[in-house]
């Protein structure tokens, strides 16, 4: 996993709330067996509309998505995270994220930043006034900076450490595999097994 320490780029204002993962990437785009190439499906239905913000040339190079509340609701598809990353987004800012989406994004190195709705609105105003405004998402300092504004955000220390170090969860767990074996040796015998198959 790529390390995330600090990122500076430009931002894209997505003035919609309740953006579900079916909108982020519709089901018909899920039919791949690799983790790349999903950028074509990103917001596919909305991109048919030439006025949709992703189609506006001034936002084409944006790497930070600033969305309305309840971003990433619905299906657990991790493809939503890959689609955003494949397209070039490094961070998403919203006042509220759906749990599974947030879990997926933080595992995959897409930083999801929670800011109060009024700060989100403020960022929207600033980037709409000048789409070239540089925005910095600083995980070390736990803040978002653009122009003269600094918005602090929270993230638990463990996740922050993992992202900054670019550490893979499986590797971390395998370090404690003895604890897993110990747990397994005390599991009750009545717990069901899928093998051998009974029917």
């Amino acid at each position: 996993m790529e390390k995330f320490v600090t990122h500076t780029g430009t931002a894209l204002p997505l003035r919609r709330s309740n953006v579900d993962t079916d909108q982020i990437i519709p089901a018909v785009y899920l039919k791949r067996v690799t983790k790349n190439g999903f950028e074509d499906g990103l917001f596919a239905a909305w991109r048919n509309d030439p006025d949709f913000v992703l189609n506006q040339p001034q936002y084409r190079a944006a790497t930070v998505l600033v969305a309305g509340a309840d971003f990433g609701t619905g299906s657990s598809r991790e493809h939503a995270v890959w689609a955003l990353q494949n397209y070039g987004f490094k961070a998403v800012i919203s006042s509220r994220f759906a749990d599974i989406f947030r879990g997926n994004s933080l595992k995959g190195g897409l930083l999801t930043v929670i800011l109060p709705q009024e700060k989100v609105e403020k960022i929207w105003e600033l980037i709409e006034a000048d789409p070239t405004t540089a925005i910095t998402v600083d995980l070390e300092a736990k803040n978002v900076r653009l122009g003269s504004e600094i918005f602090p955000f929270e993230l638990d220390d463990y996740t922050r450490w993992r992202l900054i170090e670019g550490l893979d969860d499986i590797g971390l767990t395998l370090k404690n595999i003895d604890a897993v074996s110990a747990y397994e040796s005390s599991r009750p015998s009545y717990k069901p097994k899928t093998l051998p198959a009974r029917s």
Binding site: E78, G103, N104, G108, D156, D169, I170, T173, L174
Partner: peptide, 20 residues
């Protein structure tokens, strides 16, 4: 509960998940 694909890989490899 539902999990993402990275977590699917995690469970396949370790039969556990780190969870809050």
């Amino acid at each position: 509960f539902g999990i993402g694909t990275s977590e699917v890989e995690h469970v396949l490899a370790t039969q556990t998940l780190p969870l809050v």
